[in-house]
Design a protein around this nucleic acid. Structure first.
Lengths: 199, 199, 199, 199
DNA sequence: TATGAATGAGGGTTCATTCAT
DNA sequence: TATGAATGAACCCTCATTCAT
């Protein structure tokens, strides 16, 4: 008489995924550890056997893990030896793909950034990785301007303008909407390349 | 057991300002009514004497009041009979001015949007005004494209890209930073006008 | 330009009447001093100028005053030289008249008796008067049994049975109901006189 | 930081019993959840682990559960095929037994009826069961009058008179008093049967 | 591993009461 | 007398977290 139909042990990935979903649905503070553990198929007490560190650590882990997922493709492209305009186009598209493919986590990065910053021990590694990621964009812009492919602009303002716009997609994008993530990506790439005089 | 020799009567404005500051500093959930009342110079109990409705109503009031302050200039400009490119430039500048001049509230509009949406009775009036505000931008873009001043773009994507970027300024802008709000505004106006082929 | 149309100073009677109404409508704990003062036409602060002693004292005053109103007629009749059966009938009718004529206070005497008893300084005078009032009934019963007009019964049980039933009228009586207070009174007098073998 | 070496698992019954005791001792509003949880041997927080629904739900549960306990015997007797006079006598005795056996709950039904009615969502089921219970008495009276065993009376008034008197016993009955519950029951049955001309 | 009982801190909110004006 | 601003105590309730089983 088997009870659980091969419950399959829960792994870290499962927890992070479920947590991201719940955090997104209810907000960090609105989400209870009960909600999250239930989403994993556990009781609240059991969650602590699988994930050490509590709620705050869970949020950090979700965001760090998510940052990797979302930025992986962008990082790879940024390291490739493409000419700046082509590289920027592809990077933007990859970024939007990442955001539209993981809206929950991407939105979390916006909505819970403040939560993160108010944590007792601010998660330096997450913020560092995030800044480093921003650096990737800066570098492409700088390169492009240097090589004459891009019109000169204030790199700081442009980068943040670009990143703000790209990340904000997670807030308004709807999978069932008029435009696919890919279509949105193309449009945005056009906008920013044109702004750099490299359409 | 009252005290206080009537330092100066507290008004609604004082409360909203203090609340905005505290909500921004600690986040909606991180902020206690104690924090807020202390920032006004009152005890928690006294706050309820001056502002009816509790914490949620306070957030809504802060945001509604802030939306008016921030968008006032933009609204006025949007109604003026300027040619689209000039109008858009001025509107963007006014928007950035509004955001950099009220970073606390502007950031709140980003960070606590989720909070707002998860409220029992979502504040329709606020959301409606916000959507209507977005409509102002759409209209300028549409007009400009119609009159041939702007290169055709997907209006939906462009508007949200623009608004995302503009609002995001509240997150990274520092009064003591390298660039003034006005300088940032000019840069961003350049970026988006160029993207519309109207530099 | 007169402001208040001859506001007419508020007197103790007004306060007690209003308080009785509010206490009955909302219950002692559910009623706030605001409610009561508003019912009198004052602000909360002002009430304390007219009635010393606070909320608890107010409840006691309402009940004491009410007890007098309701029992006045009964007391007078009890002192009269009627034969026990006739006296009991008239007393019961007067009692029901008092209760149906002052349901708010009468119900308060039931519902807030417990509140009263849990007060720091239990209002001895009220309880004493109440017990003394019960004694009036006991005496009539005892007399009637002694003179042979009434069948012997356990006086304690009978009195409490009678009083419980009479006071309970305040709970179910409705002015707009099928029966008038007078009709109810007659019925109840019949019941208890018959129970004493004196129909 | 849990403690308690599992003295004995707490069940719903324990909670309802303790709550009834505390509500009776202090009144609904005077009783704190602390008082109640302490009476069960728990901390306030733990109480919510075992009983979902908070203080109001607790009062309702206590009353509903109590109503069942107190009226069980009466219901059974009312359904039996006894002649009305005998049935009424037994029912009254059973009722008094129930009330004297559960004075706390019975008194609660009187004292906190008003509290109950002022609840946001009045507990229909409780009130319905209560009315239905009253119907049992009505029916016996009606039957008895119909069969000629009882003198005609106004059934509404008589039933409420009877019930008011019976329930009121919970207010004045003292286990250590002169009369046992059984003795009181007999006396009261005599009173009301005689009133119906069926002694 | 998994559970669920238990905890304790903390927050929002209400309200009786007071006092300067 | 009348007001309304101010206070502070108290209470209900939630929840992250722990630990015995």
């Amino acid at each position: 008489m088997p009870r659980k139909p091969a419950a399959q042990t829960v792994n870290r990935e499962d927890i992070l995924t479920a947590a991201a979903r719940v955090f997104h649905a209810r907000g960090y503070h609105g989400a209870t550890m009960q909600d999250i553990s239930a989403a994993v198929g556990l009781t609240a007490g059991s969650l602590y056997h699988h994930f050490k560190g509590g709620k705050e650590a869970l949020l950090i882990a979700v965001l760090e893990h998510g940052l990797d997922q979302i930025t992986a493709e962008v990082r790879a492209l940024a390291a490739s030896p493409l000419p700046p305009p082509e590289k920027l186009r592809r990077v933007i598209c990859a970024h939007v793909r990442g955001v539209t493919g993981h809206t929950a986590i991407a939105a979390l990065m916006i909505y819970e950034l403040r939560t993160l910053l108010s944590l007792p021990e601010a998660p330096q590694s997450y913020l560092a990785r995030r800044d480093e990621f921003e650096g990737l964009y800066r570098q492409i812009i700088v390169e492009g301007i240097g090589s004459g492919s891009f019109t000169p602009v204030d790199v700081g303002v442009f980068t943040r303008t670009l990143l703000g716009a790209l990340n904000w997609v997670s807030v308004w994008y709807r999978p069932e909407g008029r435009l696919s993530g890919e279509a949105i990506a193309e449009q945005m790439a056009d906008i920013f390349l044109k702004a750099l005089g490299a359409a």
